[in-house]
């Protein structure tokens, strides 16, 4: 049970998704044209959001690594 259970830990799923999104947005942000930057009031919003999502995604993965869930191991006691 232990291996698939860790794979499905919600922190891994969110962390992984945010890393991928962060990567996409960071690259897009680096390539953004002046017009896109101007739409966002001069803020390189794709870049900043991308970096923030990388950090959040990393934090979720780190959290999962440091405090693995003891999860539903006890689920055989009822239901």
């Amino acid at each position: 049970m232990a291996a698939p259970q860790r794979l499905f830990d919600i922190r891994r799923v969110i962390g992984g998704l945010f890393l991928v999104y962060g990567l996409i947005l960071t690259v897009t942000g680096l390539l953004d044209s002046a017009q896109e930057i101007q739409k966002a009031e001069g803020i390189r919003i794709n870049l900043w959001t991308g970096v923030a999502m990388l950090v959040v995604g990393g934090a979720f993965l780190l959290w999962e690594r440091l405090r693995p869930s003891d999860g539903p191991a006890a689920s055989d006691e009822e239901e």
Binding site: L7, D70, A74
Partner: peptide, 27 residues
């Protein structure tokens, strides 16, 4: 990702809720 988890979880667990919200085992 969401549908993938749905499929994978269906195969890997006895009941669909095992991994997440069941068994009265969560912190």
């Amino acid at each position: 990702v969401v549908l993938g988890i749905g499929f994978a979880a269906k195969r890997a667990v006895r009941t669909s809720l095992d991994f997440f919200l069941s068994g009265r085992a969560l912190p």
